[in-house]
Amino acid sequence: MKTRFQLLLAALFLLTGANVFAQAKYMHSHNDYANNTPFYKAFYNGFNSIEADIFLVNGTLLVSHSDKYLEPERTLKGMYLDPILYALRRDTTRRLCLLIDVKDDHVKTLPALVKALDHLKPLLLSKDNPQGRLKILISGNRPVPANYKNYPSILWFDDDLIYPHTQAEWDRVGQVSLDFEKWSKWKGTGTIPDADKQHLQKTVDSVHTNTGKLVRFWGAPDNMESWNTQIDFGADIIGTDRIEQLAGYLTKKAMTQPVTTSIPNKLLK
């Protein structure tokens, strides 16, 4: 005879499906600078992570996806660093990840970035400041893991599982970001093929088990069906260009991580 708890459990599954036990997700604003209100729209919609692509041009860090569209007034300082400093000073509970995608030579660009971050240093998450509320995550053109030690600990690194790591190198990794199309050609219409979903699930489980890192897939279809599918196979961070829609969707499902929680470098036990 089923217990009262078992009957309640079964009812929950019937009403909401297996996702009743899914983890709340972190929200990432992909290519944030391309939307009509860079930084502010994502920040005030509760996003935990915001992306800016950068080039170093005549000593200034400019924000753009391509060197064909560089504009001198679109600086990293003006579009992101200064607004972040102001916002985090006003809201002393808020935490944020700024994912910086380096589009040119990281050997020249990363030292310039470190210099540009100097006025934010009290806020920066690092080995020496574990309570820092701003994590700087380096993606795109970045050093090989063996060279992470050459950079200050205010810089964390995105990983794509291409290179082997020592434990010390894994300790500098903020998250794992993978190209969705290498796992599936599904376009977000209808149901994802079972084989693809199982492959994605196994990949996420393997990263969690072997590295403890959180996982984001870039290049995934950007619609409700895709977001729900990513939730089902266990992606930790959901990226989007549709800021308000994703925020509303996850809020409705009660699956949004609080803005006072930073994206951890390792899964929380």
Rank of each mutant, 00 (worst) to 15 (best):
Y163V: 00
M255Q: 07
F5W: 14
L15F: 06
R4K: 14
S153P: 04
Y69C: 01
W218M: 09
I54W: 02
K103E: 05
P122R: 02
L61Q: 07
F47K: 06
D104G: 06
K197S: 15
D241S: 11
V144H: 06
R74I: 10
F13C: 13
I263R: 01
V107Q: 12
K253H: 14
A168S: 10
V114G: 08
P221W: 15
L246E: 07
V114P: 03
Y26L: 04
T75N: 00
S177V: 04
F180A: 00
L76D: 00
D105V: 11
T240F: 01
Q23W: 07
T189M: 13
V114H: 05
D159Q: 10
G59R: 07
H208Q: 01
Q6A: 06
A168W: 03
E181M: 12
K202D: 14
T211C: 07
L123E: 02
P164Y: 06
H165W: 05
F157W: 01
T191R: 15
D82T: 06
N129Y: 09
D32W: 00
I100D: 07
L155V: 10
S29A: 15
A235M: 11
I138D: 04
L70D: 05
V173W: 03
M1W: 03
E73D: 13
N48P: 06
N35I: 08
L268K: 10
W156Y: 10
K266G: 00
D205L: 10
T256W: 07
Q167C: 01
I50E: 05
T211F: 05
D171R: 08
A22C: 09
K121H: 08
D53R: 03
K103I: 10
H208E: 07
M224R: 15
L137R: 03
A87E: 09
K127M: 09
L161C: 15
L70F: 11
L99M: 11
M79Q: 08
S66F: 12
W156D: 03
K197H: 13
V107I: 15
P122T: 05
S153K: 02
V259G: 04
P152D: 14
S177Y: 12
H208W: 03
L85F: 09
F21K: 02
D241T: 12
D101T: 09
R4T: 13
K202E: 13
